[in-house]
Nucleic acid binder design. Structure first.
Lengths: 190, 190
DNA sequence: TGGATAACCAAGCAAGCGCTAGGGCGAATG
DNA sequence: CATTCGCCCTAGCGCTTGCTTGGTTATCCA
């Protein structure tokens, strides 16, 4: 499954690529910019990655994988109250967006740039992550904590969370956890 | 204020450009693709627009302007109940995203690609649009319809709405109005 | 000690990019 | 009737792009 990030060197390069992709966007990031950031020449890049697409695929796999792992850990480490679990998921989501700020952002905002074969190969990771959300939201609905259609609710919540990337200032007074808590409070207020 | 889209021909070209920008993204859309879609040669494009940046600016101005006009009209045509006004804004927002599906989407998702001078020139339009939202949300907060911080609530709502572009299928069973109503119901449920 | 291997570089190619120069042509205008 | 004007074309320039080729090291293990 995870053939992609074998060597530690490649993993480090993937991390740097993620950073640049967030700053500039995938299309505007040239292989020469990537190489310079990595301290090598542009040709050397293709010793580690078959082409530019594969760099993107590696970053997105990393980002989605991280999000999945962190969300699972968050669910394991919280009690069974539907509201606590909802809050844990929201916090975990923002944690992957802002503390390890890069790979998951790329996964969310540059998914369209994936070639269709890579997209097909990675979609199961994304599906597994979204399945976590669906389950947590289903429980919250059943407990009467929130109201509406599960599919729509999950899309709305993820939309609100993902869009934070566009406006949130990590230097400001609010922490990512504050945001998560406020969102959960907003949709569970009675 | 609106020096940008003078001639009707240019307005039509702007409409076509918006369509391509949504499909492909600004960076991946070449001037040759734009020209072909418009039925002219690539060189002829620069009779209407100074450069590619100006096409983007024209599209974004169009999209933001439309959103502002439609939102104002929606507010004029609904009663004064805070919930009705909230629903009207959400419906108007999705209307500009999905019925005239292009220019506003570009304004939201390609704003970063604007050169700083164009961005500065257009930001007042965006600010005016967001001011409408802030006012409507403030009223809803005061009426006790929703709870939380006005700034955060508006960001969350707009995030949830904007993200629909990524998953909503216009061919499906739900109308954009359905989405808007469900979102409002979700955050006002007691 | 010798051969494989991983990591890199120098040089550059073919294709595509945004954009320009200079001219043609029919409709509107004086 | 002459001139302007809006709209378009042909041709191509200069540059950047992703990527390739062929070769050089340093490291590691048999």
């Amino acid at each position: 499954m995870n053939v992609m990030n074998a060597s530690p060197r490649r993993k480090e390069l993937t991390r740097l690529a993620a950073q640049l992709f967030v700053q500039e966007g995938f299309d505007r990031t040239t292989v020469r910019m990537l190489a310079q950031e990595m301290g090598i020449k542009s040709g050397s890049l293709f010793h580690h990655f078959k082409d530019k697409q594969e760099i993107l695929a590696a970053v997105i796999e990393e980002g989605t994988h991280n999000a999945l792992v962190i969300a699972r850990r968050a669910l394991d480490n919280c009690d069974e109250h539907p509201e606590a679990r909802l809050r844990a998921m929201a916090r975990a989501h923002l944690e992957t967006l802002f503390t390890d700020r890069n790979a998951h952002v790329v996964a969310l905002f540059e998914w369209r740039r994936l070639a269709s074969d890579a997209s097909a190969h990675l979609s199961h990771l994304r599906d597994a992550y979204e399945a976590l959300w669906v389950q947590v939201i289903d429980d919250a609905l059943e407990a009467g904590l929130i109201h509406g259609d599960c599919f729509l609710v999950s899309r709305f919540i993820l939309g609100a969370l993902n869009w934070t990337v566009r406006w949130y200032d990590p230097g400001g007074p609010r922490t990512p956890d504050d945001l998560a808590d406020e969102l959960v409070a907003m949709i569970t207020a009675r």
